[in-house]
């Protein structure tokens, strides 16, 4: 859960987060980039199907193609983290 909740009510926050997640998800599924100023951006990575080995059984698996989401922090954020720590 969000460690601190500021201005608005808890339910609203929950709703908004859900909506945000859904919207970001949709954008990413459409391979769009979601940019947040001074924070960074979320982009999609396409992974083609590949052969993998099941870790416990050792059997070969065919993993289907998928879209993943990745986050790239902005320089400002990276600087903040560097300075803060």
């Amino acid at each position: 859960m969000l460690s601190r909740r500021l201005d608005i009510s808890v339910d609203t926050v929950g709703q908004l987060i859900e909506a945000m997640s859904a919207s970001v998800g949709r954008c990413a599924a459409a391979l769009d980039v979601v940019a947040v100023p001074s924070f960074g951006f979320f982009e999609s990575r396409r992974r083609s199907e590949r052969l993998a080995v099941h870790p416990s059984t050792g059997r070969k698996l065919l993993v289907p193609p998928r879209i993943t989401i990745a986050f790239r922090p902005s320089a400002i954020l990276k600087q903040k983290v560097k300075d803060g720590e």
Binding site: S21, A22, V24, G25, R26, A28, A29, S44, L51, A52, H54, R59, K60, L61, L62, V63, P64, P65, R66, I67, T68, I69
Partner: peptide, 22 residues
């Protein structure tokens, strides 16, 4: 949830076991 929503176009696929010679 987010990962599933992002992968929506491919969500219906699952990993499939294949023969060792594949």
């Amino acid at each position: 949830e987010l990962a599933a929503s992002v992968n929506a176009p491919f969500e219906m696929f699952e990993s499939v076991e294949v023969a060792d010679t594949f």
